[in-house]
Design a protein around this nucleic acid. Structure first.
Lengths: 356, 356
DNA sequence: CTGTTAGCGCCTTCAC
DNA sequence: GTGAAGGCGCTAACAG
């Protein structure tokens, strides 16, 4: 049985050195396989380390090497399925490369953002991934001054240390709205989340542009304060009010900033007696796992969120491994998801329930 | 504007000491407010630190104090909504207490579990939270030997360093199955996830016990290899097969290990032409945010997962703050969720769609 | 091939 | 009230 650690006192290379009758630098070198040493002592030291249950003290190592082999990730809300998939991708790559991962959330609060960044800097992380659109948009300068490689997810910014992985939200939203138009919807409202910054802006702009290019009014939109189910439901009142004022009718379709808002909207509309999609069609964005299973199944844009996390951390680690120091070649990767059409936007939908 | 960091070289207390014309220990003391120093130098040093953009090096501090003010959390799958809510609760408390959080996942793989634990130990975390039932059940001894305070979520184990926050799954599952029995269902199958260990065992046992006490057979159960939507759907074939063999009929109700399996099961049953709940009722466990929004709305047991994360980390921090060292008073907290009855188990359901 | 010396940045005795 | 040493555990130079 492998002994991870011994009781009471933690074993250090000095302890091993004492037992082996060598100096501790020799232990250090042989354990890391760096420099010269005889094969004989190598195996002997390895055996002793194993037996004593030696675990290298990464804190001490980090102090002298100035590299901690750790990275930090910042998200607005850990439990948001969009973010948690990104985190999962990041953690997968980090663990595979033997890096540790610090996790911090911001609740979209600038104060907290700074606190988390500050703590990461204090911990001497080697790099940071920011999946919090607010930070990316508003604190880009501060981040760039950190002199640490930083990868922004879904946020661009200019800076020699700032890199990015993003989804082409304009193109993605165009696919969704284009689909709604082809379905013949005329009064297409937008349920947004302005705090999301650029991401929100792109989706909204695509909606606006496409409607105008079809000679339709992009006049009705509402902002939800949080991008979750609850606020999606809560925003419907305002949306219906504005629609009445603008069109003298409810909308015939609602394009939502994300799936969570869409799910909340559908629930709320149901409670108000609307049939979906017969009375109102609803489309989302993200393609959460559950999107196919709600009532009705949700039309949405599939975002490769796990892959975005993977790419972001691969990019970060690549930057770190080049010289061991930051390399100054800002990069940006853009990905485009896929339109997934389901029942929430097509009255004639049979889909997965064929054969009932 | 607050300057988090200066370019190029990182400021240390020595730099501040040089500017202030004092020794670095004085800077250290005054910045931390420990020991004696004049108020005059305190404000002066604080001003200089501020101006230079000093950020304490937590790595160096951790090396000398032997406490890193960091904790680690281990989960099986970060993106599982049950786990991500726990993580959110843990992170909230940790951040509030100025602790940093390491995140590691295990994919239910023992090798990875050990790798993550080892990395946490190497990082000198002050404590660990394990929300990975496998680890808790099978590696309890190893964990206890770490001589670190450890809080297990949904897993008991004896050990002087092992504490726990858990949900009373037996009682919870009894509530669900009891409801199914009161609804008059007779052929109640169980869709489980054996790898979940004790948690799974409790829910299964409650199902079995309750059925037997009602003179019914608990003869049909199937294990899904992963507790997700996909495997929930994939397990239906086997479940129907066994039901035919056992009852000569499909089940009239299925109690699922968790909501994800239930959602997958519902989707798959729909595709096979079953009406829910008219042909088969389905109940889950967890009450994920989406449970109320799927088709049909899911009857389930609401688990206070965010609160479980909060309690676990509060408990851990309390253990740490007592003497700064581990205190040996194993504790256990048990919580009980709430049965949420929705449409998936009552044919007469109108629920939130009243007034359509 | 291996040992000696030095120092990462900080905190912690102690004198003064 | 403050400074001078010493060391946390490790790696990085150099000698030999």
């Amino acid at each position: 049985v492998i002994q991870i650690i011994l009781n009471k006192k933690r074993i250090s290379i000095k302890d091993i050195a004492a037992v082996a009758g060598v100096s501790h630098p020799t232990v250090s070198r042989s354990l890391r396989g760096e420099g010269r040493f005889s094969e004989a002592t190598r195996t002997r030291i390895a055996a002793i380390a194993q037996e004593l249950g030696y675990t290298p003290n990464l804190v001490a190592r980090g102090l002298v090497t100035q590299r901690t082999r750790s990275i930090g990730i910042i998200v607005t809300n850990i439990a948001d399925p969009f973010h948690s998939e990104i985190i999962r991708g990041v953690e997968y790559v980090a663990r595979g490369a033997d890096y540790s991962l610090f996790l911090g959330s911001t609740t979209a609060d600038p104060e907290q953002e700074l606190q988390v960044v500050r703590s990461f800097v204090g911990r001497n992380v080697d790099g940071i991934i920011v999946a919090s659109s607010q930070v990316g948009d508003r604190y880009a300068e501060i981040l760039d001054e950190l002199d640490l490689p930083i990868v922004l997810i879904n946020s661009h910014a200019d800076g020699s240390n700032l890199h990015s992985v993003s989804h082409d939200d304009y193109a993605g939203a165009s696919l969704v709205v284009g689909h709604l138009l082809r379905q013949g919807y005329q009064r297409i409202a937008f349920l947004g989340h302005r705090q999301a910054g650029r991401v929100h802006g792109e989706r909204r702009r695509a909606w606006q542009d496409l409607l105008r290019s079809h000679a339709l009014e992009a006049g009705v939109s509402v902002d939800a304060p949080e991008p979750n189910i609850e606020q999606g439901a809560a925003s419907i009142d305002a949306l219906l009010d504005r629609s009445s004022a603008f069109w003298n009718h409810p909308p015939d379709a609602i394009f939502c900033y994300n799936d969570l808002l869409a799910i909340g909207a559908i629930g709320s509309l149901h409670r108000r007696g609307f049939w979906i999609p017969q009375d109102v069609a609803v489309a989302g964005f993200d393609d959460l796992d559950v999107a196919a299973y709600i009532d009705p199944p949700l039309t949405t844009l599939h975002q490769p969120r796990y892959q975005m996390g993977v790419r972001a951390s691969e990019m970060l680690l690549a930057l770190l491994d080049q010289t061991g120091q930051t390399i100054e070649t800002p990069q940006g990767v853009s990905m485009l998801g896929e339109l997934i059409v389901r029942g929430s936007t097509q009255p004639e939908w049979q889909g997965e329930k064929d054969g009932r």
